[in-house]
C-alpha cells in the first residue's frame, strides 16, 4: 500500500499533464462540496435585477433574464457536469471493456457477433439516437446519462477488442493457459489489466465528450429543466447573446475548462499507467 502511494506521488510529480488534470479535478470536487459557501446567491432564486452586466455590485458575473445570479449558477452547474461525465463514462467504459474484451479474447463466432454489434452502433448517428431516446423517454438527467453511456461504448469496445486480440497471442497468456488458469481468470487477470489502460485514457476523454453532449442537449432544449447545467445556461443565453453576452460566455468558458481538465487527466493517466514509464528520468 505504501509502495503504491509513493509511486502515485512520484508519477504525480513527474507528469505535468497528470498534475494539471488531478489538481483540476480536485478543484472541481472542492467547488461541488463548497458550493453553498462559494455561491453568494441561491441559483434558484429569481430577483428583480434582470440582465445585470458583469461587474455589478453583488452580482459580479451579472444576472440572466430571470434575474438569477450567473456566478452562483456556474458554481452549482459543476455538480451536474461532473455527475454526467462520471456516470456516463463509467457506463460506457464498463460496457466497452466487457463486450470488447470478451469478443477479442474468445474469438471465433463470439468475436464476429461482437464486431457486428459494434459496427451497427458505430453506424447509427449517435446524437440523433440520443435525441430520439430523450424525446421518447423524457429528459431527466438520469436518462441523459444512461443514453450517453450506451451510445459511446462502441469506441471503448473497439479499443478493448483490439487489445484483447493482440494480448491473447502473447506468451504470458499462453503460459497462463499452460499453468492451468481458467478462461475467466485469464480474462480478468491478464487481458483486462494489460489492455484496459488505453480504454481508461479514452474514457477520461469521453468524460469531456459527455459534458459536451449534455451541454448540446441542453442547448437544444432537451436537457433536464429542473437542474442547473452549463449547457442549459448557454441555451438560455442564446436569445440574449447580442444584449447580454455574459450568460452564454461564462458557462461556455466553464465547459471548455472542465473538458481540458479531463483531457489532461486522460493523457496523463495514459503516460503514467504504462509500467515502463520512467517517472521523468531520462533513459
Amino acid at each position: 500500500m505504501k509502495a503504491v502511494l509513493s509511486k502515485c506521488l512520484r508519477a504525480f510529480k513527474a507528469d505535468g499533464q497528470l498534475r494539471f488534470g488531478v489538481i483540476g479535478v480536485i478543484v472541481l470536487l472542492l467547488v461541488i462540496i463548497l458550493a453553498p459557501i462559494l455561491a453568494p446567491h441561491d441559483p434558484y432564486s429569481y430577483e428583480f435585477v434582470r440582465l445585470l452586466p458583469p461587474g455589478s455590485e453583488d452580482h459580479f458575473l451579472g444576472t440572466n433574464h430571470m434575474g438569477q445570479d450567473v456566478y452562483s449558477m456556474l458554481i452549482f452547474g459543476v455538480g451536474t457536469s461532473l455527475k454526467v461525465a462520471l456516470i456516463s463514462a463509467l457506463i460506457s467504459g464498463a460496457l466497452g471493456v466487457l463486450i470488447g474484451g470478451l469478443g477479442g479474447f474468445l474469438g471465433g463466432w463470439v468475436d464476429q457477433v461482437v464486431s457486428e454489434i459494434i459496427n451497427i452502433f458505430l453506424m447509427i448517428p449517435t446524437f440523433f439516437l440520443i435525441l430520439l431516446i430523450i424525446s421518447l423517454f423524457g429528459n431527466s438527467i438520469a436518462n441523459v446519462m444512461i443514453v450517453i453511456g450506451i451510445t459511446t461504448w462502441p469506441g471503448n469496445a473497439k479499443l478493448m477488442r483490439a487489445q484483447a486480440l493482440s494480448l491473447r497471442e502473447r506468451t504470458f497468456v499462453r503460459s497462463a493457459v499452460a499453468l492451468g488458469e481458467t478462461k475467466t481468470q485469464i480474462l480478468f487477470k491478464y487481458i483486462l489489466p494489460n489492455g484496459i489502460f488505453p480504454v481508461v485514457a479514452n474514457t477520461t476523454r469521453s468524460m469531456a465528450g459527455a459534458i459536451l453532449t449534455e451541454a448540446s442537449l441542453s442547448f437544444l432544449g432537451l436537457g433536464d429543466p429542473n437542474i442547473i447545467s452549463w449547457g442549459q445556461m448557454i441555451y438560455q443565453g442564446k436569445s440574449y447573446i447580442t444584449s447580454a453576452w455574459w450568460i452564454s460566455a461564462f458557462s461556455g468558458i466553464a465547459v471548455i475548462l472542465t473538458v481540458i481538465v479531463f483531457y489532461m487527466l486522460g493523457d496523463g493517466l495514459n503516460h503514467v499507467l504504462n509500467p515502463k514509464y520512467n517517472y521523468g528520468r531520462s533513459k
Binding site: R170, T171, F172, R174, S175, A176, A178, L179, G180, K189, Y190, P193, N194, P275, K276
Partner: peptide, 22 residues
C-alpha cells in the same frame, strides 16, 4: 485439467514476454 497442467509444462522461447508486465 489442473493435474494435466502439473504433469506437462512448457518453457517458451521469449523470456521477455513470458510474464505479465504489470
Amino acid at each position: 485439467p489442473l493435474k494435466f497442467r502439473r504433469t506437462v509444462q512448457i518453457v517458451f522461447q521469449n523470456p521477455f514476454d513470458t510474464f505479465t508486465p504489470r
